[in-house]
Design a protein around this nucleic acid. Sequence first.
DNA 1: GTGTTAAGTTAACGATGTTATCTTTATAAA
DNA 2: TTTATAAAGATAACATCGTTAACTTAACAC
Lengths: 212, 212
Amino acid sequence: MPPKVKTDAEKQTVRIAIMDAARELFIHQGVEAVTMRAVAQRVGYSATSLYLYFSDKEQLLRAVVDADVIKLAQALKSTLSISDPQQRFVQFGQHYVQFALTNPNHYRMMMMTQHPPCDPAFSSIEQNNPEQDAYSQLIGVVTSAWHAGVFKPTLTDPALIAQTVWAAMHGLCALQINLADDAWINWRPLESRMQAMLEMCLHGLMKESPHA
Amino acid sequence: MPPKVKTDAEKQTVRIAIMDAARELFIHQGVEAVTMRAVAQRVGYSATSLYLYFSDKEQLLRAVVDADVIKLAQALKSTLSISDPQQRFVQFGQHYVQFALTNPNHYRMMMMTQHPPCDPAFSSIEQNNPEQDAYSQLIGVVTSAWHAGVFKPTLTDPALIAQTVWAAMHGLCALQINLADDAWINWRPLESRMQAMLEMCLHGLMKESPHA
DNA sequence: GTGTTAAGTTAACGATGTTATCTTTATAAA
DNA sequence: TTTATAAAGATAACATCGTTAACTTAACAC
């Protein structure tokens, strides 16, 4: 029974309801639980109606994750106001890891699964807007620390530094998310690994012996 | 037309043929191309016959990947004979990255997708056998370097060192495999990132300024 | 009133993993 | 030699999934 003629705002409301339902399934039961039928049931629609709001499942998932990419940027934003460049750098990294490990399914979706490569032109996220783009935040944090002269003099490319430390932190998160329960590995406590990784990065990049 | 009664060796041959067909699809067209029907057609059987040799798709894939886990250990084995502990450490890391990036689909399967956690008791891989278990190789390499005193004195736990450097290298590989084509990131050349990561690890872990 | 169309639904298609059931044939027992 | 058994495989079929096509219903425009 279609009560007809929805304003754009109402449409947006439905869109968001669908995304919320998908997110709920996604977070608590992983990607494979997100079937169009399950989402539809949760939101009280028929499965095919979702296609009135999203062109396909991929786009629905992408919309869900995009919203949380922005949440990542928001989560990191608070560290940007730290005045000491090195402390800012450290805190930024720690917040990144914390976000990843408290939102493992989203992190997995963002960083650990293959999508069709994302074209910034068609993304809902505004590239280079520090409110939304965590990578540009990282570049900013590293660049300002670089200008402050905290890095070893042999390191001359802030983007390369950023990509290296990102990779290191990502590796920590990715192994934890995927292999933490693997009985093959006698894992050291997560806290120890975080600390060790952070210190390796600092000693490996900073000019003088830093304190994490 | 079943010509009946296969010896164990013949059965094994079929098993391997199935695995080879699956691997072929897997390597060249990714996981999603590996359907039971596609594998069956490639090997000249009906889809349901694969279930006479593998209990389900997951086990088939696992068997394929397990075989290549051993290949990883083989690929790393050559570095174990390097006499200088630090050089051995460096070469081990470089070979690891090289294996990951020349076998991205297998690496993705091994390290970047969620399986049911792997129980060593039921694995076809012999844990702690350096011929088959790359992680135990890593522990060995790090431990011997540690005994040789190449690490900073604050680093007292070889396993923690190993897990940290593994995470760092894994991060490099994982981002490359998943996000190399992402237009969002202005990636530095892979070679530069490898070099930078290696140097960060060395400076971050080694006692005195090392040369990569 | 009468179309028109937006907002939904139901039916259905093709693909997939998987199970149940049938077919065939080589061998073991009579 | 005949016959029962079981191995090796194929066909048919089921449930589930993403997705499309076709149908229904109700609010508005004239």
